[in-house]
Design a protein around this nucleic acid. Structure first.
Lengths: 341, 341
DNA sequence: GTGAAAGCGCTAACAA
DNA sequence: TTGTTAGCGCTTTCAC
């Protein structure tokens, strides 16, 4: 940090006290018009910038929000950050970001760093909310909001999607269309939200009285290529199905690519539906069917709730579930014809 | 900010001076082993955290890097941020992020906010580097590094891709394969890097003695759907071409979708090559041909150069061009057969 | 080894 | 209106 001119020097040059300079800068208190102009002129000339660090130290408020994310490179997180960012800026806050790659030690370290940095609040987005996380958070003297993870039991405010519900509802739509033998290409076991979606899927089947066929279920890792291979694995073990649900849109595309490679027509023979439609969905030749929700809204709501908590000094437990839409489009058809050999 | 225990109270409880506590916390100076342990115990018991704000004020160093990005939601920026973030953490810095949506006033405001926050340096990623940007930056007492924009004339350090060169080279590859009637679906005019790519394209043609046909050139906005329509526009005005180059991978996919819809075979009749291959490319059924480079490296290099500048107090003008690879894969064929009507 | 005290640059209560 | 002054919590000489 180079040497900057400070308030004392400005005051000296303007022949006033530092208090007056402070008042001018903050538009607080009354200052005679002529002195105000004088001071403003000096500020202009000298290129003076107040040192916000000192102000924050004095005010005990940083207007800084820390955000800890496990992964920046998905389709959703950048959008969520965008949403957060927008609300923060509007309300005079700044965003401190840390990327942890899901490593617990990194997360822990950043809770401490953020605490030391005296951020006013923290937005925490992780893959799996652990009891250890809860303990860390409970120790902090500032509000922490969980993004993407429901934390009912822990009484920690959160904003998330209702993964269980939309997966169930989407499955029901397929069932209504006459499908009963449905594949599920899921996420990794470590993803709580992935498991929730799977639970929604199986519950929908159960409630419809459809037996669950393990041949048609497989885990994946969210990626297009992986889905291609997983679809192939399923094809190799059982071809008696008429629909596929995938954990996200990339995997829907991977599945479609695989099916078409094997001369299975989508949606004539197999319908495909992806949960979590993002920009990837737009690359599909077929208009993809599936569940869509706004990550921007996720971020915006998260930021709003957190700021409200901070500014009201309430210790309220607040939460919000972002709504979703289900689209049935080109990749889904009413009653797919069998392609059984 | 709630009331936290501070150094004075710790000192009191330990019956030592605050200077000693400070020494313990920073491992600076000599402290007798027994007093050190005593103090550490008190720190443990009280859950004391040093107020980094105060330290920063005293030390005149925040270990904070500001990053101003115009757009968070592309494929590349999150990866670049990841790269930046990784280097910063490794070297003990934190990342302050601002999203401007390309609005000049927002950019300006954040340069000021960051300056006031006393960040140690700024990484600036914009679409178009203006003289006004240069003026702002020159006024700042801290180093600013331009990401994605070359700033030769301004003597501002930068890390970027060589958009001109890779576009030219990719075009030359197509020419070598026997293509001469090549479409170009470009970016918006506001994107300097898009224009550079276009310049590379036209120069390659010129140098090969190929006349430029305006029918085959069109601007777009980087998006898949837009590319679909732009490809259609070209098809409507001129079908005498054997290859298409698009400004990015999403547009390559859009173009392919359009061609196939019109029963034009890729790559048998038309080869398609996309600049800037990202995760979108992986959704294509055909392995996409094109230029690929690492946004992670972009971010890492940017952070490294900036930190070096900060820590050495040099005012060196430093720069780095991230290398690229050109892949010719399924979407390109040697000499496409004509599909002219 | 340890402590006292002078900053760091600002805000805000109180006085004038 | 304006100025004086006591913090905010830490680092860092300089004595002891």
């Amino acid at each position: 940090m180079r040497k900057d001119i400070n308030i004392v020097e400005v005051a000296k040059k303007a022949n006033v006290s530092i208090a007056t300079v402070s008042r001018v800068f903050n538009n607080s208190g009354k200052v005679k018009e002529s002195t105000r102009r004088k001071i403003e002129q000096i500020i202009e000339e000298t290129g003076y910038y107040p040192n916000i660090l000192a102000r924050e130290l004095a005010e005990k408020k940083t207007s800084l929000i820390g955000m800890i994310v496990h992964n920046m490179t998905g389709e959703g997180m950048p959008r969520a950050i965008n949403g957060v960012s927008e609300v923060l800026i509007k309300r005079g806050y700044n965003l401190l970001i840390a990327c942890t790659n899901g490593v617990f030690e990194n997360e822990q370290k950043h809770f401490e760093i953020f605490r030391s940095k005296r951020v006013d609040g923290i937005i925490f987005a992780t893959d799996k909310f652990l009891t250890a996380h809860e303990r860390m958070i409970k120790k902090l003297p500032i509000p922490v909001l969980s993004l993407l993870q429901v934390t009912e039991k822990e009484n920690i405010p959160f904003v998330s999607f209702d993964n269980y519900r939309f997966a169930k509802e989407a499955t029901q739509k397929l069932i209504e269309l006459g499908h009963s033998r449905i594949c599920f290409i899921g996420g990794p076991e470590s993803s709580v939200n992935g498991l929730e979606r799977f639970r929604g899927f199986t519950d929908a089947l159960k409630e419809a009285g459809i037996k669950i066929n393990k041949d048609l279920i497989i885990n994946g890792n969210f990626h297009v290529e992986d889905s291609y291979h997983k679809m192939k694995v399923i094809l190799d073990r059982n071809r008696d199905f008429t629909a596929v649900i995938t954990i996200n849109d990339g995997m829907a595309i991977g599945a479609i690519n695989c099916l078409e490679k094997h001369n299975i027509l989508v949606p004539d023979q197999v319908s495909v539906l992806g949960l979590d439609l993002t920009v990837l969905a737009s690359t599909s030749r077929l208009k993809l069917s599936g569940v869509q929700y706004s990550y921007e809204t996720l971020g915006e709501k998260g930021a709003e709730i957190l700021l409200n908590l901070i500014e009201s000094e309430d210790t309220l437990f607040d939460k919000y579930i972002v709504p979703y839409d289900i689209y049935l489009r080109e990749s889904v058809s009413c009653r797919s014809k069998s392609f059984k050999p």
